[in-house]
Amino acid sequence: MRVQLQSENGMLGMGPFPYEGEEDPDLINAGKQTITELSTTSYFSSADSFGMIRGGHIDLSILGAMQVAQNGDLANWMIPGKMVKGMGGAMDLVAGVKRVVVVMEHTAKDEPKLLKACNLPLTGQGVVDLVITDLGVFTIDKKGGTGMTLIERADGVTVDEITVKTEAAFTVALTGKPSNAA
């Protein structure tokens, strides 16, 4: 499978980090890290970049999260009362990219992060397709329908443990044997 990485500041076909001494200040990714170009690379403006993102031309986006709800709502950009850094491109990514995958810790200080409803301000409404945590993997039917489903659990983790640490309602349809998810 050939994977092409898009960097939201305006680059398609992102290459690896440069060798020491070959860093180029004009060539950075969305995390402001120095990177390199490939033979497949193209550059464009941020407007074209988000046209690509919002226009549904990007297949997959992987993000972190503070909270995910069973209906696919995502909160990952602000905690009221704390200094907010900004959402950057996250709201555009979840609104426009075909498939949104969240990778996160299952709980924060033992509090569940997979909830019936998010109580932090949303990044997107009904946008998450798949959640991968240190305990398991869940699919979310964000159009409603079948809701959230546990499809995989990490090695040594029981469904009971996952149930205790999850507030969201989910059904269990394990595929294959336990794996070291995340």
Binding site: E8, S46, F50, M91, D92, L122
Partner: peptide
């Protein structure tokens, strides 16, 4: 949102006073 910011500027420069986007709906 970054894409909304980029598009607001693009639109402003192109004589488009407003546009609709799905970014940020419900937020």
């Amino acid at each position: 949102p970054q894409g909304t910011l980029a598009e607001r500027i693009r639109a402003g420069g192109a004589g488009i006073p407003a546009f609709f986007t799905k970014t940020g709906v419900g937020t």
